[in-house]
């Protein structure tokens, strides 16, 4: 039930992709997304597909995990492709539905292209969360944002990272607590499932208020515990775990660069 919700969907493994530095993965993901949008024709999109398929196989994460992700956003894919199908112009007119809704070959081509792009986008993005623990992602973001230090925002970066760490740590605890409160309210006769939308929203109030109060109390206790462990806002703090770039990251970056170069070349030449 609720307990099964995990933030991020880490899939344990020891593949090449798993062992990449989290920072490398984030940067390359951004790069990949940019180039997915730059890919202007079928040839470059095909190149992107081949590359994505290669990387996905390399991660050894089962295909059904990725399919599951695609399935959840299937409505969005269908909606976007339908929109593109009717709005796309050019090519022969195949048939006209009622009013002015015409389907052209150009429209079909465009819909297929956009669908391909969205699917690739989702596949490559889910790869990051499947192969990287939330903690590593947090550390990587802290490290990547550390350039903000130059602008005197060192404190802000640290606070952001600390907030993410604590949020991650407390998600299961708060989920458990929510379940407890829900059961307690149900035992007192609360009806959480039936009724109109408004009734359902109203039924949430007796759950959210105790949860909020207990969270504030937790925060207070946690702050005291952190103070007892010599925390003073991150001044002079030295992390035990350090992210390290290795040869592996260089190989991954070069592989990616090749793919990106290919996309540009195909865009221009074909």
């Amino acid at each position: 039930m609720l307990k099964d919700i995990t933030f991020g969907q880490y899939y344990e493994g020891g593949s090449f992709i798993h062992r990449l530095d989290a920072r490398t993965k984030i940067i390359l993901l951004i790069l990949n997304i940019v180039f997915l949008f730059l890919a202007g024709n079928y040839y470059s999109l095909a190149l992107c597909s081949i590359f994505t398929a290669f990387v996905l196989t390399l991660s050894k994460v089962p295909a059904r995990m990725f399919l599951k992700n695609i399935k959840t956003i299937l409505p969005i894919i269908i909606f976007t492709s339908l929109l593109n199908l009717f709005y796309g112009t050019g090519g022969r007119v195949l048939f006209t539905l009622f009013w002015k809704l015409t389907v052209t070959t150009g429209g079909i081509s465009r819909a297929v292209f956009i669908t391909g792009r969205i699917v690739l986008l989702i596949l490559i993005s889910s790869l990051l969360t499947y192969t990287t623990t939330p903690n590593d992602i947090t550390d990587a973001i802290e490290s990547l944002l550390s350039f903000l230090r130059v602008f005197g925002l060192r404190g802000a970066v640290h606070v952001l990272a600390m907030m993410m760490t604590i949020a991650l740590r407390f998600i299961p605890t708060l989920v458990e607590e929510t379940e407890k409160i829900m059961n307690a309210q149900k035992a007192r006769g609360a009806d959480l499932e039936n009724g109109k939308l408004l009734d359902k929203v109203k039924a949430l109030i007796p759950i959210l208020i105790p949860l909020l109060i207990s969270s504030v109390r937790r925060a207070y206790e946690l702050a005291e515990a952190m103070e007892c462990r010599c925390y003073n806002g991150g001044v002079g703090r030295v992390r035990m775990k350090r992210l390290r770039f290795s040869l592996r990251d260089l190989i991954a970056a070069m592989g990616n660069a090749l793919c990106c170069g290919g996309v540009i070349a195909f865009n221009i030449l074909l």
Binding site: N135, R169, A225, R229, G236, R237, V238, K241
Partner: peptide, 20 residues
């Protein structure tokens, strides 16, 4: 309400890390 990190060893490291 005392554990800060979601990995045991990282949590234990919190104190020494703060000590620099």
């Amino acid at each position: 309400n005392q554990l800060i990190a979601s990995v045991v060893e990282e949590d234990v490291a919190f104190g020494p890390e703060n000590l620099g």
